[in-house]
Amino acid sequence: MKKTSLIQRYWKNKYLFLLLIPGVLWYIVFKYFPIYGLTLAFKDFSFRKGIIGSSWVGLKHFTYLFSLSGFRRAFTNTLIINFYQLLFSFPAPIIFALLLNEIVHIGYKKVVQTISYLPHFLSWVILAGMFMQLLSPSTGALNHLLGVFGIGPFYFLGDPRYFRGTLVVTNLWKSIGWNSIVYLAALSNIDTQLYEAARLDGANKFQEIIHVTLPSIAPIVTVMLIFQMGKLFGDNFDQVFNLYNAAVYEVGDVLGTFTYRMGLRDMQYSLSTAVSLVTNVISFSLVIITNAIAKRINDYGIW
């Protein structure tokens, strides 16, 4: 009885399903077919035998990884830095988009928008050199500026106390414009009638933002937040690699830089698969949990 009803439901939505089929096929071919590569985490890879023919070794690579003190530290550092990112870099583009949205002159708005996404196109290699000069305690412009107010100087890149903050702020600066684009898109679709209605009710700008704007972009914010949770182990390798040094390993060494120094890129496929499997299982769980919470609160989520 239930079976027939399912078939009937598919038949009723045949067009919908037809649209889905090519995509599902693509996922099967390009994503599910190669997934056997994951087994490498539990095998000792042999070039001659290939992935399928290599012999199983159980959890050997995982126990080895967690026995490395450097790995454990990199693991926590990654988590802490990404948590800061979540706290500061996640809301920043939303606020930026809201502020930008309040600008009345279309021309000025467009110019600001265009300029704000420029840093996204500069690689960390280039930016690192600039930040090194800008943030120097003796010759850097920022410390000169702070000196005028009688603060500092700070060794932003060489002092473990400031390094994580420096990472978060520089990353925020680089990505704020680019990340705000999706929110600007959401803002642009808010029905203007809603604003007019609010204004008739005597709402001021701030109340308008609270009661009209924020609820309207809540769905997209929720989804972005869920994905951001999945990035708690994400790789900011390029940034850290170009900015860090031995004095800040304690606080700045992340999974990407640690595995890079281990030389995992070369022959140790099994180990690097194990690293990514560990982080991805956690990320995936975090996404599922956040999604469940979000669903309960405002009914928007990935599922």
Binding site: L68, S69, G70, A247, R261, M262, G263
Partner: peptide, 21 residues
């Protein structure tokens, strides 16, 4: 060397800097 290089190198560089400063 492949196995321990990353953590050995890290410990070394870190210790030297901490002693020098």
């Amino acid at each position: 060397m492949n196995r321990y290089n990353a953590q050995l190198q890290t410990l070394r560089e870190q210790a030297y800097i901490q002693i020098i400063t």
